[in-house]
Every structure is written in structure tokens, then in C-alpha cells.
Simulated assay, not measured.
Amino acid sequence: MSAPYYHTIGKEVSVFEQTYKCKLPILLKGPTGTGKSRFIEYMAHELDTKLITISCHEETSSTDLIGRFIIKGAEAVWLDGPLTTAVKNGSILYLDEIAEARPDVIVAIHSLTDHRRELFIDKLGQTIKAHEDFMLVASFNPGYQRGFKELKPSTRQRFVAVSFAYPEPKIETQILVSETEVEPDIAKKLVNIATKIRNLTELGLTETVSTRLLVDAAKLIHSGLPKRLAVHVAVIEPLTDDLEVIQALKDLSDLMI
């Protein structure tokens, strides 16, 4: 199986490799669509280890991660959750948007993020030592949370942390071409549109144009959708529901594409 495409931006690969070697947990910080999930997929491939991904949300509980009893026939049978499976088998467990999960999830992983590297399963009364190859990875979008669901300092300090940002235009253009085979001049125009919108702070957008959105637009253009329409549906509409802002962004992108 070929490696997932990932364009190295800084020293993140060597940091991850040494963090894995030292058996430390790592936290990836940055806006949506900056390549955090793709980076983890790439590193799991490079390290030849299994990756288990959990997309956290407000209903994600420690039970979802650790496991639960299920009724099978006339008896209750324990079923390991993804965290327990990763701890036992030595996989990389990736908690995407960890701040969205319920507080008991943070409590559950505490003993895995320090020298103990162990998981306590309360319902079984068991403590499991993590496999030598187990690694805990979490991602977090500080800008999106805006203080509402911030990670506590005591939790942050249990992780090695790496910040992700949008690539510089030249690299972002290369990413679009590599990911979608779109023409380089079109990729460059898409990146220019994204850069312009990212700098329009007066519009009050909660999120801005991610590399992921540009990839979607480039794929649509490469498949034959008109350029302006592709930008409208793949970049502008996902950003906001405000009709005035949509029109302003549409006028801007139409001129630039």
C-alpha cells in the first residue's frame, strides 16, 4: 500500500519519530484542514503501525473508548473499545478534536500520558500496561474553540505539542497539483483566493478557507465543473450561511479565478 500523500512543512516528521521512540503522547494544534489527520495517516504508514482514529464530539465518553458489556445470548460479554484495543495491540490511537469529548475522556487517558502508560478499566477492576508500541495522539483547534472548550493547562502539559498552519502559497499550490492533478495555474489561483479570504478578518468568519476545501474545489474543476461554480460550492458555501458574506466572497473569487 502506497503512503498517503503528505508534504513536509517543517520538522514535524522528525519530532513525531522521536516522540514515538520516547513513548510520549503528542498533541497536534491548528485550524481545520491544515493536514493534521493526513499527517497522522502518513506517520502511521512510515512507522508501519496500525492507526485507530476517533472523531470526538460532545457525546464521546470514556465508555465509548474503553469498552462496555454487551448482552450475547444469556450472558454479558465484555467488548473492548478502540482505546483498550490500541493499548493492548500497540497501535496509534488518534483522538481528533479531543476538546470536543466529554471530561471523563480526559480523565481516562491521564494515566496513559505520563510515566505509568497504563489504562484502568473500572468496570473490570483491571489495569492494563500499554504495549511498547502504543502511542496516543490528539488534535485540537484552539481558534475554533474560542475558550469555550479549551484544554486545561494540566492536560496540555502531558503532551509534546506541534503547531500546524496553512502552508505557504508555493507549497499549498504543489499540494493541490499532487492531490488532484489540476493544472498548476488553476491551483495557484485557488491558493490566491484562499490567501485573500484568510486575510479578510472583517467578515467575522468562524472558520476560514482550509487546504481541504481547496482540494475539493480542485477535484471538481479537474473533473469538469466550471471553475467559478466549483469555488462557490466547495469553498464559499461551506464557510458561511450569511447571504451578504456569501455574495461578497463570490464576487471576490469570480474576479480572481
Rank of each mutant, 00 (worst) to 15 (best):
3 A>N: 06
8 T>P: 04
9 I>F: 12
13 V>P: 00
15 V>N: 05
16 F>M: 14
21 K>Q: 13
24 L>C: 15
36 K>T: 04
37 S>F: 06
41 E>T: 05
42 Y>V: 01
48 D>M: 09
55 S>M: 08
56 C>H: 05
61 S>G: 08
62 S>L: 07
62 S>W: 01
63 T>N: 03
63 T>R: 02
63 T>G: 01
65 L>H: 00
65 L>P: 00
68 R>V: 05
68 R>A: 05
68 R>Q: 08
71 I>S: 12
74 A>W: 10
75 E>N: 14
78 W>I: 05
85 T>N: 09
86 A>Y: 04
89 N>W: 04
91 S>I: 02
94 Y>Q: 02
98 I>M: 10
100 E>F: 14
103 P>E: 07
104 D>N: 13
107 V>T: 13
110 H>N: 12
110 H>V: 07
111 S>H: 15
112 L>V: 13
118 E>T: 06
133 D>S: 15
133 D>V: 09
138 A>G: 13
141 N>G: 06
144 Y>W: 10
146 R>A: 09
150 E>F: 11
157 Q>Y: 11
157 Q>I: 08
158 R>Q: 12
160 V>F: 15
160 V>Y: 15
164 F>L: 10
166 Y>T: 08
173 T>E: 13
174 Q>E: 14
180 T>Q: 03
181 E>S: 14
183 E>C: 08
184 P>K: 09
184 P>M: 04
188 K>S: 13
192 N>H: 14
203 L>V: 08
203 L>G: 03
203 L>C: 11
208 T>A: 09
209 V>S: 02
210 S>Q: 02
212 R>S: 05
213 L>V: 02
222 H>I: 01
223 S>M: 10
226 P>W: 05
228 R>W: 08
236 I>M: 01
238 P>F: 05
240 T>F: 00
243 L>M: 11
243 L>W: 11
244 E>P: 03
245 V>S: 05
246 I>G: 01
247 Q>G: 12
247 Q>V: 01
247 Q>T: 10
251 D>C: 08
